[in-house]
Design a protein around this nucleic acid. Structure first.
Length: 680
DNA sequence: AATATCCGTATTTTT
DNA sequence: TACGGATATT
């Protein structure tokens, strides 16, 4: 530990040593924030603070693990693992299972994910008969969005509708009804959605007895990525640490990228108001990137009309400028990325120390194909749709009704797995299934002979009863999943074209379940900390090998690599054309690019494809000419070394749109097809 | 009321 | 391309 302290600069040391009043650390990208936090935890433990009395709130569970393992290495104490670490949601989950009774909550409550919330909203909308009229009514996903924003921003529904969902404003009454029923039904059935975990925690903190009990559990609270917390999370912090003693938050307003989730930088800006006597520490020296990379990053964020009073500087000189690489099109971009990656690997940078970053999960689709073709192993972070896949949800729904027979959304799903049961029958059965008689096995046996069960559904229902019988509380989670998989096999075969691929997903789910002591833990964990990378899904064998990292920019937060490739630096991609419109959202996209650029240590490549093939318009090849991202205007582009992939062909960015577009299946492609192994 | 079939469409980011 | 929604058929 002593040794470690020598490696801290004065500001970092101040943040590590500070005791007493509230502490706000504004930490620029790459300024050793994680390191400082880990040192502080280690230092506290060194001072004799009991690890289990430290609460470390991070943005992902991965971040918490990373920080705690660093702290552990510093102190050499295994006890550091006893620190309460995790996301607000995960910590809320743990606290509520311990102390939720004070709020009338059963400890075995179910955690609903986003799609579960949406499904319950849909179920209720059907019950209330809303949305069957001529007027269009918000879809289930929109309802879930509206709800979440209202709760997280702690704003009136009416205002949320007017500001964010004006096209739904007319349906205020109906939406209100649904939200009322939604709240009641969750409560009745012991289901909590993501927002509830925060809401109930907040309520607990404000409960006369419960509040003190929770507050007295912790001597120190540390919050990472504070710029990405929302109003409710700030309230929780305020309620848990009313006196402001021993609270530390760390963040960077220039890296706020979760406003879409109702996060607000006001939390960080107003922290000193909320906690009087706040000590402010700024970390501005960047230890990660070379100065040329920082020059570009600083220039990008400097164009933000919002004030980010920070200019990162580094002692890492370098002659290597960031590269802005103009490509012909997407295949050309993929090709260029592969070549650059391999080139750096030749020079000794392992694949693992290189990352390809992009705005949206599907932006790497083409690249993934190309990487596979060239046998370059990769792991992708973010943008995974695994948990949303219908068959995965189906399997989990079966486990969930076994765990919590009051979970009506899951019953609704499960019943529809049966032959001859559609939404209408399922809706009726959900009401009829005797939920209070536990265990579930009892409810299901004999249920198949009850009146009103469609004939074709009876065998399936009996099979389900047998699944319930085989999945007692003492059966390990993977074995339970195996049993469920066997039940689902014929169902999937009947319902889907590529049932085998879906079955493999269920096998992966089984892998994930390994190591969990109980079904309940597995289910809650899966909802709170779903797999975020293809590596997690593929299991351990990959981990020893070298692999390239592909990641959404959101998932890359907190990461750093020797070489970073930012692809699709075109308007419509960054900023996403889903996010254009209001200025706030555009600014968030700008910060997103800033986050991407500042991940790089030694080398940075930004790729811009000149044209995009327009998807799905018959067989006609249609291209449109892209604009380089508005966040890299000419004066910033000057800070890059500019290259093109087609130096032998006269194409410039200034070329009229029509000329490039007309090239369509042009000479380059004809040539390429001659040496490509791809069939035409 | 369920299922088969077809058509259009919209398509971020994540706890 | 996959999914949701609408329409036709069983």
């Amino acid at each position: 530990m002593f040794d470690a302290r020598e490696r801290l600069n004065p500001s970092q040391r101040e943040a590590v040593e500070h005791l007493g009043g509230p502490l706000l650390v504004v930490a620029g990208a790459g300024s050793g924030k994680t390191w400082t936090l880990a040192c502080r935890v280690a230092r506290l433990v060194d001072r004799g603070v009991l690890p289990e009395r430290i609460l470390l709130l991070t943005f992902t569970r991965r971040a918490a693990r990373e920080m705690l393992s660093r702290a552990e290495r510093l102190t050499g104490e295994r006890s550091v693992g006893r620190v309460w670490g995790g996301t607000f949601h995960a910590v809320g989950n743990r606290l509520l299972r311990l102390h939720g009774r004070a709020l009338g909550l059963r400890p075995d409550f179910t955690v609903m994910d986003r799609t579960d919330s949406a499904d319950l909203m849909d179920l209720i909308r059907g019950d209330l008969g809303l949305g069957v009229t001529e007027r269009r009514f918000p879809r289930k996903d929109t309802l879930a969005d509206i709800y979440s924003r209202t709760v997280n921003a702690q704003t009136k529904l009416r205002e949320v509708l007017e500001a964010e969902f004006p096209w739904c404003a007319e349906e205020l009454d109906g939406i209100r009804q649904i939200f009322d029923a939604y709240t009641d039904r969750k409560r009745e059935h012991d289901c909590l959605d993501y927002d509830d975990l925060l809401l109930y925690w907040h309520a607990l903190a404000l409960t006369p007895g419960g509040g003190e009990r929770v507050a007295s559990m912790f001597d120190h609270i540390l919050v990472d990525e504070y710029q990405d917390t929302n109003a409710l999370q700030a309230d929780i912090l305020g309620a848990t640490r009313a006196n402001g003693r021993e609270v530390m938050v760390v963040g960077d307003d220039a890296q706020a990228i979760y406003a879409f989730r109702a996060a607000t930088v006001r939390n960080i800006l107003e922290f000193p108001d909320r906690f009087p006597g706040t000590r402010l520490v700024r970390l501005e020296q960047n230890y990660r990137s070379t100065q040329p990379i920082l020059d570009v990053s600083n220039a990008v964020i400097a164009l933000s009309p919002q004030r980010h009073e920070k200019t990162l500087w580094s002692e890492r000189r370098s002659d290597r400028q960031p590269v802005l690489l103009t490509c012909l099109d997407e295949p050309d971009q993929s090709d260029a990325v592969c070549r650059a990656v391999l080139e750096h690997r030749e020079q000794g940078v392992p694949l693992k120390e290189q990352a390809v970053l992009f705005r949206a999960g599907h932006h790497s689709d083409l690249l993934e194909v190309e990487l596979s073709r060239r046998n370059i192993p990769f792991v992708k972070y973010g943008g995974l749709k695994f948990m949303e896949a219908a068959h995965v949800k189906d399997a989990l729904a079966v486990l969930r009704v076994l765990e919590n027979p009051r979970d009506e959304v899951s019953w609704f799903r499960v019943f529809q797995l049966l032959e001859g049961v559609g939404p209408a029958t399922a809706r009726r059965l959900v009401r009829e299934v005797p939920r209070d008689g536990e265990p579930v096995v009892g409810s299901l046996v004999g249920f198949s002979t009850a009146a009103g069960i469609p004939g074709p559904a009876r065998p399936g229902l009996d099979e389900l009863a047998s699944v319930a019988r085989d999945c007692g509380a003492d059966v390990p989670p993977p074995a339970q999943l195996g049993r469920v998989r066997r039940f689902l096999e014929p169902v999937l075969a009947r319902r889907y074209d590529h049932a085998d691929a879906r079955l493999r997903d269920l096998e992966q789910l089984e892998q994930l379940a390994a190591g969990y002591p109980t079904r309940g833990r597995f289910l809650a964990d899966l909802a709170l900390d779903p797999p975020t990378s293809t590596a997690e899904l593929a299991g351990p064998p990959l981990l020893d090998e070298d692999y390239l990292v592909l990641s959404t920019i959101h998932s890359a937060k907190g990461g750093e690599w020797d070489v970073v490739h930012v692809i699709h630096a075109a308007d419509g991609m960054i900023p996403s054309d889903m996010a254009t419109g209001d200025e706030e959202r555009i600014e968030e996209e700008r910060r997103l690019l800033y986050v991407a650029l500042t991940r790089a240590r030694d080398a940075l490549y930004v790729y811009f494809p000149l044209r995009y093939r327009r998807r799905n318009h018959g067989y006609e090849d249609r291209y449109h000419h892209a604009q380089i991202t508005r966040f890299l205007p000419e004066e910033i582009r000057g800070l890059f070394e500019r290259r093109t992939t087609f130096s032998d062909v006269e194409v410039s960015e200034a070329e009229p749109v029509g000329a490039v577009a007309a090239r369509g299946r042009g000479p380059e492609e004809l040539l390429r097809s001659l040496w490509s192994d791809e069939p035409d």
